[in-house]
């Protein structure tokens, strides 16, 4: 080290070392990081520390300490499930940003989007990201399902997790569809008109289904409020619960499937 030659540098290093010890020995620090956390004593690469990274962090809710060797092969999963989850997070973050500038009424919605795109810093970019990530998520969830099917990963003991997964696919479509109306432009209005007309043909109580979805007999400001609430609150809430069960079952059913 170059510092060892210079006494001034050495003194500084010692002081820094003392400060580090002081911080890491403080009650606040040790109350934040669990015993064995790599932030208590620093990290050097050893099998024990590799385990501690997972065991003593919140990641332990998601990942076990070790997985089957084939499970980390990108060519097996193509990361599709994880990326669907990540896109959900990305959509939540960008969506919260959009919520700051949007009022779900027929009189204001379109103007708010227009203002967001022209007068808000990064407004256009964030809206673009929200839109493209949403399409990407529909695609990745769909491909994830195909991947799971072709690997036969729905077979016992994973039957129920497949059922949860198909539910999640439907919720993803619903999330995307409810978001489609919110810009309140011609594309939104008529795409949703076509979509909800289809649902009106549900046998026996088709009219009622359509009425509940639209909050009236035709699309209007009530529909907008209804779909906004579904889009930003109810569906994400349901999806998070289903995802929690989905991820939990992945581990309980013995990690991901395979090798073939």
């Amino acid at each position: 080290m170059a510092d060892e030659k210079k006494p001034a540098g050495q003194a500084l290093q010692e002081q820094l070392g003392q400060l580090t010890d002081q911080v890491q020995g403080s009650q606040a620090w040790s109350s934040i990081f669990r015993p064995g956390s790599i932030f208590r004593k620093g990290y050097n690469d050893s099998p024990r520390n590799r385990s501690y990274v997972i065991m003593n962090s919140v990641l332990y809710h998601l990942h076990p300490v070790k997985v089957k060797r084939h499970a980390v092969k990108v060519s097996y999963t193509l990361c599709l499930g994880g990326l669907s989850f990540f896109l959900f997070i990305l959509l939540t973050v960008t969506g919260i940003f959009l919520m700051f500038f949007y009022r779900p009424t027929a009189a204001q919605a379109w103007d708010d989007i227009q203002t967001l795109q022209t007068a808000v810093g990064f407004g256009l970019l964030v809206r673009n990201m929200h839109r493209w990530a949403a399409h990407l998520m529909v695609l990745s969830v769909f491909l994830h399902m195909a991947r799971v099917f072709y690997h036969g990963a729905y077979k016992p003991p994973r039957e129920f997790n497949w059922v949860i997964g198909v539910m999640l696919l439907q919720f993803t479509l619903l999330l995307s569809f409810t978001g489609y109306l919110l810009p309140w432009d011609q594309l939104a209005l008529w795409a949703v008109t076509v979509g909800t007309n289809m649902m009106g043909f549900t046998p026996v109580f088709g009219e009622q289904v359509r009425f509940v979805l639209l909050g009236g007999v035709e699309i209007g400001t009530d529909t907008l409020l209804r779909w906004y609430t579904l889009h930003v609150l109810m569906l994400p809430f349901v999806v998070v619960i289903f995802m929690a069960i989905h991820f939990w079952r992945v581990r309980k059913d013995g990690g991901i499937s395979g090798p073939l």
């Binding site: 379109w110 309140w184 432009d185 008529w190 795409a191």
Partner: peptide, 22 residues
């Protein structure tokens, strides 16, 4: 991302299409 003109109940675009997944 597309933002067409304000929604108008009297002007039906031709064709009217649902979102691509539908």
């Amino acid at each position: 991302a597309p933002l067409l003109e304000l929604a108008d109940f009297n002007k039906t675009p031709n064709p009217s299409k649902a979102p691509w997944y539908f």
